[in-house]
Each structure stands twice: as C-alpha cells, then as structure tokens.
C-alpha cells in the first residue's frame, strides 16, 4: 500500500488535499497539530466545505491554506485578514477562517488585525505563535520573549513581546482564547466554538518550533517542550487577558473573552434595510 493510499483511509482525509502531502513542516512543529484540530472541528461541526474559505499569510503555517480542501487563499505577507475582510463582506454566506503566524498577523499585519477586530468582521483568526520567524531561519518577532536568542537577536532579545490575547481583547474581539499544541481537545473545542460564533474571534496557539527557535534557545526536543507545557500551563477561563502571562515558569491558557456584540455585517444589514425603506 502506498503512503497516499494509507492516508486516504484516514477519517479526516476528505478534508485535505492529499496530493499536497507530505507537508513542509518540521518534525515536532505545532502547525500539523493545528491543522489536525482544525479539520477535526470541521468534521465535528459538519461544516459545508463548499462555503468555507481558509485564508493564510506568509510563514510556515501559511502553507495550511493549501492543505485544506476548500476554497483557500495564500496571500501576501501580513495581509490575510484584510483580504479575508473583502471575501466576507462581498459574500456574507461564506465562513472565513484566517490561520497564520505571529509575525504575519502581529508585525507586518498588526494594523489589519486590530482594525478587523474593531470592526467586528465575522471571521475566526487562529494564530500559530512559535515566537519567531521560522521559515526565514529564525529571526525575532513581535512575540519573541525578552532575552531569547534568534538570528537577529544574537545577544538576546531586548524588545518587549506582545501579549496577543490582551491585544485581541483590547481591540474588540468577541472571543479570545489561548491554548498550546498540547491542548488538542480543548483547542478543537475552542475552534468549534469560534466557528459557530458571530464576530471577530481569536485563538492563540502556542506552538513548538524545535528545529529553529527551540534549538537556538536550548529548549530540547519537541517532546520536551510538550512536557514543559504540561508542567507550566494553568487553565484559567475568564481570566483577565491583560494578566494572562507567558513566562518561563507559567503559561496561562483558557477562554478569556466570550461576549456578544453586533457584527459589521449585522449593523450593515440594519442600515441597508433602513435605506431601502426610504
């Protein structure tokens, strides 16, 4: 039996473009787990794959759009949310998921993130946060911890990192959660919840990067990172995202925000009806 034939037997195979495999991700990378959780969520919800659009940016996780068997767009660096805004507003019947990395969404694309959250455009944004630019060989990014080593912080990082969940909540996201690649079931449930909820939803996934970031910071193998997640993660639902820290000793995970707020589309529809009546 060929590898492909073996793949085809997998219950989730129908959600994937199998001809695109093997994927490009390193051994131990969290991106494959995110893909797994995402398609599991699609399967659990029975999502209509003809009405789902996955949009990604540039970076390792950016390739995910090309692996899922639905309409998908692998955009320019930093622009997936802006492009997804256009898709959603032009065809409100589509379900939109943006899956991208910390650098793509919060450095080069940071402005689009905060404004889409503020507008409350209906989309689910999943960020694979691996603390560095893995694809280009490991440079520091907007989430790299202080003192960490990357190719562009050879003497240690002196820039304070973003707390992504705090940023998302402050910008107006209606659902904000953080998990790690270890929390497969909880992450899947979070994705399901987000996909069913209206408005701008954000899920941060702390993701091991053993080959690039891990190696340079002596974090050991991926399995060591996973073990560490188990030791230091603390689940705190409803916790103040401003205080939801990520440190060497502790990572606060959980669902921090789950509120209701009219979406851009709903407000527009209301306005549309008023104008049509005139």
């Amino acid at each position: 039996m060929t590898v492909l034939q073996e793949f085809e037997k997998h219950p989730l195979a129908k959600y994937l473009r199998l001809e695109r495999f093997p994927h490009i991700w390193c051994e131990g990378c969290g991106d494959g787990i995110i893909l797994n959780c995402f398609v599991k969520a699609l399967d659990d919800l029975g999502i209509n794959m003809d009405k789902l659009v996955v949009v990604s940016g540039i970076g390792c996780i950016g390739r995910i759009a090309g692996y899922i068997k639905c309409d998908s767009f692998h955009t320019t660096h930093g622009r997936p949310i802006a492009l997804a805004t256009g898709i959603k507003l032009a065809n409100p019947k589509l379900t939109i998921a943006v899956i991208s990395g910390d650098g793509d969404l919060f450095a080069i694309g940071g402005n689009h993130f905060i404004h889409a959250a503020r507008r409350n455009v209906d989309m689910t944004v999943i960020c694979s946060n691996n603390f560095n630019y893995g694809m280009t060989g490991g440079q520091f990014g907007p989430t790299t911890p202080l003192d960490s080593y990357t190719t562009t912080t050879p003497y240690g990082n002196i820039e304070h990192p973003f707390n992504l969940v705090h940023l998302a909540a402050a910008a107006g996201a209606v659902y904000v959660a953080r998990w790690t690649a270890l929390h497969v079931k909880r992450l899947t449930e979070s994705i399901k919840k987000a996909l069913q909820k209206k408005g701008f939803k954000f899920i941060e996934v702390i993701s091991p990067c053993p080959e690039i970031y891990g190696r340079r910071n002596k974090l050991g193998k991926a399995i060591d990172t996973m073990k560490r997640y188990r030791q230091i993660c603390e689940i705190r639902h409803g916790y103040d995202p401003a205080k939801a820290e990520i440190t060497i000793e502790k990572i606060i995970v959980g669902e921090f925000i789950d509120i209701e707020k009219p979406t851009y589309g709903e407000l527009l529809q209301k306005q549309f009806l008023t104008i049509q009546k005139r």
Partner: peptide, 30 residues
Amino acid sequence: IEVDGMFVQMEDELASMAAIIGASWAGAKA
C-alpha cells in the same frame, strides 16, 4: 448601499487593495 453593493473604508491602502482582491474572488466586481 443603494445599489445592493458593499462599501468599506479600510485602515490603509494595503488593506484596500487586499480587500478588493478578496471581494473579487468572492465573486464581486471590485
């Protein structure tokens, strides 16, 4: 809005250009 179309003021021109590409792929003349 009068002609059943969609107007959005984006955060900058990078986003405006990205949005019309997205809209075009969603089937709209943009």
